[in-house]
């Protein structure tokens, strides 16, 4: 699916907190890790950080690249499964901070790890229909994982923001997109619970691989293309192995996914995961390059998008900090400090 009029990405920006904990350090505490660890290390949010603060910084980076008047943004949508409030929007505060208020549509999306790309797709529709000129779509999470659980090794923190707009103003134009959705509940979190429940290996084949690969195949079929028609590809990345394998199943090479495969360094940033992969890929893409992107959210399915990079990328990407500037900005912490930063210590 795509609108009748060309749409695309006008500006983009990422944010990753500076703290890191090594998976080996988590294994040291919980005595696991036999047979290898799913990632090298993951990003940990600071005491003063959450989805709102991370979204604001990513959005400001996107604005720096887009160089548009924030008052022209018609929609601000934040996708996350760790909104700081149960009730009270994140998006209104983000919109206020970037001065997009008050004539703006705003909403928070909760759609597992697919909330970020879902917001992008909806934004494309808003822009394509002419309802708004620009829309801001954000995927961000401070991912939760129960101490000692397999998830804890990978749950990271980060955000990516995209200012979407008309194709002629874009640094990457949307060629086609689709959503592939079933009700496959492999992972969820009930109200009042701190940590999600998951179906262990059930999250693999019937969930991640089925949805990611099928969505990818169907998009390639619709476009009459193969993986070789793309310079780059980005997948949802709960660990290093899953996206590597999904890419292989669709015919993408390790080189094609390399720039956008950051999970080994920052962890699984949930709704931010494939969006941050995309910002990192845009940081290195050249005009004319095609980018293939597949998101995945547990119980939410997959979105697949095909983008083509324009000449505008060359100047615009220099205007804000590249994704790797955040990835390389790191302060390693031990498990005790990590437990403090993530509020895992029972204070009362």
């Amino acid at each position: 699916m795509k609108p009748n009029r060309p749409v695309g990405i006008v500006g983009y920006g990422a944010y990753v907190p500076r703290f890191r904990i090594k998976a080996a350090e988590i294994a040291r505490v919980w005595g696991a890790g036999e047979g290898g660890l799913p990632i090298e290390e993951k990003a940990v949010s600071g005491l003063d950080e959450d989805v709102i603060s991370m979204s604001i910084e990513a959005a400001r980076n996107a604005l720096r690249r887009a160089q548009i008047d924030p008052q022209e943004i018609g929609a601000v949508w934040v996708g996350s499964e760790s909104h700081p409030y149960a009730v009270k929007p994140s998006s209104t505060l983000v919109a206020e901070a970037i001065e997009a208020t008050p004539l703006v549509s705003a909403a928070d999306w909760q759609f597992a790890c697919k909330a970020g790309t879902e917001a992008m797709q909806a934004a494309f529709g808003y822009i394509g229909s002419g309802m708004v000129h620009y829309a801001l779509a954000i995927g961000a999470d401070t991912a939760q994982g129960r101490p000692g659980d397999a998830l804890e090794y990978t749950t990271g923190a980060g955000a990516a923001a995209f200012i979407l707009g008309p194709g002629e103003e874009s640094l990457a134009v949307l060629e086609e997109s689709l959503s592939y959705v079933t009700d496959t509940p492999d992972f969820f979190r009930r109200p009042y619970m701190h940590y999600p429940e998951h179906g262990n290996r059930f999250t693999g084949d019937p969930a991640y691989f089925h949805h990611s690969v099928t969505a990818g195949q169907k998009l390639l079929e619709q476009l009459g293309r193969t993986a070789k028609d793309y310079t780059w590809a980005v997948f949802h990345q709960p660990n290093v192995k899953f996206p590597s394998k999904a890419a292989q199943m669709l015919g993408f090479s390790p080189e094609q996914i390399a720039p956008g495969l950051l999970v080994g360094q920052i962890g699984n940033t949930y709704a931010g995961a494939s969006p941050i992969g995309l910002t990192a890929t845009l940081d290195v893409a050249q005009p004319g390059d095609r980018i293939f992107m597949v998101s995945f959210g547990s119980g939410a399915g997959s979105d697949a998008l095909s983008l083509q990079v324009t000449d505008a990328i060359v100047e615009r990407r220099k205007r804000a900090a590249p994704t790797l500037a955040y990835v390389k900005r790191r302060e390693e912490v031990d498990y005790a400090t990590y437990a403090r930063l993530r509020g895992k210590l029972q204070m009362a």
Partner: peptide, 13 residues
């Protein structure tokens, strides 16, 4: 990236 890494249990979301 770490292509070698493997975990006993990998969880998606």
């Amino acid at each position: 990236p770490q292509h070698e890494a493997q975990a006993p249990v990998l969880v998606a979301n």
